[in-house]
């Protein structure tokens, strides 16, 4: 039986303690941002809940996948192979352009750009906090994800990673109020900062003079100036320019190129020679290693061969 009149600590005291603690936490997290490591640990701790929450949706998806008729599958297959063909055609031209670009850059004696490393990730929770635009993806520190990492979808920039757990990461979207991207107009090369306003299909351009050369419909590409986003990815398209002379700057709104309201699969980007590198799945890594080792072995073999006939290689060098 429960004792009736035993109250060890009064409720009011506990409330005061809890509120004080909460206040302390808010100050620590908001003002001093010393909670980053704790947050990482706690994120990993609660990630099972996030994975559990998407299970019904995944089951539903799988069921609807298996229930698809043969005809829709065949149609989809046809469509995909068509677009694949088209892509490959474009890729050939792309390869050629990349080589040409490299050559030109060499002529100009500027650094050649390396291809960035990518990893596909799936969104497991969307828009959970009403006051900020964030999504949670199913890759974390275990896969080499880091804070500040750029995130794209198939059309353009989506946002950046703001906190990571072991197997999850939180992505702040472009449309969040606290997010801004330095961009450059594709047509005129004018640099502008694109700021989120808390609406998934609207962004605002900051500090644009009335005499700007920007036009409605201009595509804005990331300029790479902020050091977070790599250069040249599509960010937004200018929607409207309101030149109200009574305001200090023109009011320019833009729509994000990425479909921020229905993101599903995202791409994480790594700098080719950055501090952080992607960690692929063990199986994949093992295969990679095997392949590399095999290559090493063959390379060693060729080196050995070369050592045997040094004259030939020297002649080649001379040529």
């Amino acid at each position: 039986m429960n004792p009736l009149f035993v109250q060890t600590v009064s409720l009011r005291f506990r409330l005061t303690l809890a509120l004080l603690l909460a206040f302390l936490l808010i100050v620590l997290d908001h003002r001093l941002s010393v909670m980053q490591p704790t947050r990482m640990f706690l994120n990993s701790l609660v990630s099972p809940v996030q994975y559990l929450a998407v299970v019904p949706e995944q089951i539903f998806d799988r069921v609807s996948d298996t229930l698809q008729s043969r005809r829709t599958l065949r149609a989809e297959n046809e469509r995909l192979s068509l677009s694949m063909l088209e892509m490959q055609g474009q890729m050939q031209r792309f390869q050629f352009l990349v080589q040409e670009n490299e050559r030109l850059r060499n002529l100009l004696a500027t650094e050649a750009r390396e291809d960035s490393l990518r990893m596909v990730t799936e969104v497991i929770a969307v828009d959970s906090d009403a006051f900020s635009h964030q999504v949670v993806v199913n890759k974390g520190t275990a896969h080499g994800v880091y804070i500040g990492q750029p995130v794209l979808d198939e059309r353009g920039i989506v946002g950046q990673v703001t906190s990571v757990g072991l197997t999850t990461a939180r992505v702040l979207l472009l449309s969040d109020q606290s997010h801004a991207v330095p961009t450059r107009s594709e047509r005129s090369g004018i640099r502008v900062v694109v700021q989120g306003v808390g609406d998934t299909n609207q962004l605002e351009l900051m500090h644009v003079p009335h005499s700007t050369e920007l036009r409605e419909g201009d595509l804005l590409l990331s300029s790479g100036l902020g050091g977070v986003f790599p250069e040249g990815y599509p960010v937004a398209r200018i929607q409207r320019i309101i030149r109200d002379e009574s305001l200090p700057f023109a009011r320019v709104t833009a729509t994000p190129v990425a479909a921020l309201d229905r993101i599903r699969m995202l791409l994480l980007i790594w700098e080719p020679d950055g501090e952080f590198q992607p960690v692929y799945r063990p199986l994949q890594r093992a295969l990679e290693n095997l392949r590399r080792n095999g290559q090493n072995a063959s390379e060693e073999a060729t080196e050995l061969l070369r050592d045997e006939e040094p004259d030939a290689t020297e002649q080649e060098d001379a040529l």
Binding site: L15, A18, L19, L21, A22, F23, L24, L25, I26, L28, D29, H30, M35, R39, L42, N43, L45, V46, V49, Q50, A125, S128, D129, F131, S132, Q134, V136, T162, S163, R170
Partner: peptide, 21 residues
């Protein structure tokens, strides 16, 4: 409340304090 804060990605302590009240 702290768990909710982590899951929602809001600043620590916001939901914790509100839940306590």
């Amino acid at each position: 409340g702290v768990a909710v804060d982590i899951l929602l990605g809001s600043t620590f302590g916001i939901h914790a304090g509100a839940y306590a009240l």
